[in-house]
Nucleic acid binder design. Sequence first.
DNA 1: TGCAAGCCTTAAGCCAGTCTTAAGCAGGCC
DNA 2: GGCCTGCTTAAGACTGGCTTAAGGCTTGCA
Lengths: 221, 221
Amino acid sequence: MRILLVEDDRLLGDGVQAGLTGSGFTVDWVRDGDAALAALSAESFAAVLLDLGLPKRDGLSVLASLRSAGNPVPVLVLTARDQVADKIRGLDLGADDYVIKPFDLDELAARLRALVRRSQGRADASLRHGDVVLDPAGRTVKLKGEPVTLTGKEFDLLRMLLDAAGRVLTRRVLEEQLYAWGEAVESNALEVHIHHLRRKLGGELIRTVRGVGYLVDEAPR
Amino acid sequence: MRILLVEDDRLLGDGVQAGLTGSGFTVDWVRDGDAALAALSAESFAAVLLDLGLPKRDGLSVLASLRSAGNPVPVLVLTARDQVADKIRGLDLGADDYVIKPFDLDELAARLRALVRRSQGRADASLRHGDVVLDPAGRTVKLKGEPVTLTGKEFDLLRMLLDAAGRVLTRRVLEEQLYAWGEAVESNALEVHIHHLRRKLGGELIRTVRGVGYLVDEAPR
DNA sequence: TGCAAGCCTTAAGCCAGTCTTAAGCAGGCC
DNA sequence: GGCCTGCTTAAGACTGGCTTAAGGCTTGCA
């Protein structure tokens, strides 16, 4: 799950990036508002972590531009304890949640998961599809109740597909979400991961849409 | 906007109801989890405000029942400051947000608005024409409820025709849409695809307009 | 610091399904 | 009746995806 972190503080940014990466997110980090807007117009992210106190262009203004351009990406605001007013303005400007600094990394991860989940119009925590159950929090997958070990990339890929059950995800979208900048693949790595998923979970689950991408059918409950 | 408040504390409940009503919400208030589930199965709410510490059936259990029944209503959890663990469990069980007591009523209202706004952001219209249903997102087509496998070009063609139901699409328009520049066909490929579509979906759907192009009649619903 | 294990990427060959082409046929219109 | 447009069918080319295997990289552990 690819996240854009907008944070000017080097220390904090470093910690958040490391922590979230450890929780299975892919984190791209920019230091100011202009860079954030540039990144958001060029790439697609599952969510944005936005610090309000930024140099040059402040967080609220970034948020406002984003929303007035019609971009619906979920935004989680990072705010200091004494900025309650800003926080409320942020929510009304279209932020989806906020956390107060200092915050707990586990909590931040949980909130991000909730946010992304919500933004996709689904409110259930674990993703179910027939015999396959994926638990995003525990990073575990079961097939007919039996645990299946997936590697990191396999897990991310499966989660995206299940999240979007019923919709086709293009190669491009999958690759963008799977890889942060500077690690773009130019091979068939995606296909290889799909292949591994099929081997572990059966060939029925993931359908190929030739020339477009992959999808998992609408979930049978 | 109609909200269900689940709160056993009379004083707090009263305050929230009054405050939110003042902010333009319509608030139904129940005192325990069973009543909440009953209300939710009978009526429809834009969101639920759920206190975790309830008599009889506690909040997390209410949330779990709700989600396992597939109910996607946005849930905002009300929690005490010392229940961080519950809060995280709540988020992972499918809550969409929480606030810590004591909370500010304006903030609560702002969060509710953000929540509801977020929950309504999704609808991808499928194209229907009598027995034929085309889902652009899933790239699937059904005939009388049965899935039909179309190839890429067939699918694109059908989508164009359904999109323009009631209007004739000329050969020229169809070919331009179907083929990128530089790969113009100089054969009867279009006719062949139409033929395949008819074979798969029945000959009635697509009408030939001699000398002009093809059309699908105005959609019967 | 060195080793081992596992993960990810890369690359190459193979296969299947898709698309195009083309030729013959049917039917409408002048 | 002759011409023209569209239908049908089948064959071949080709693209894109699948599979497999090897090598490099990271990470954990001694």
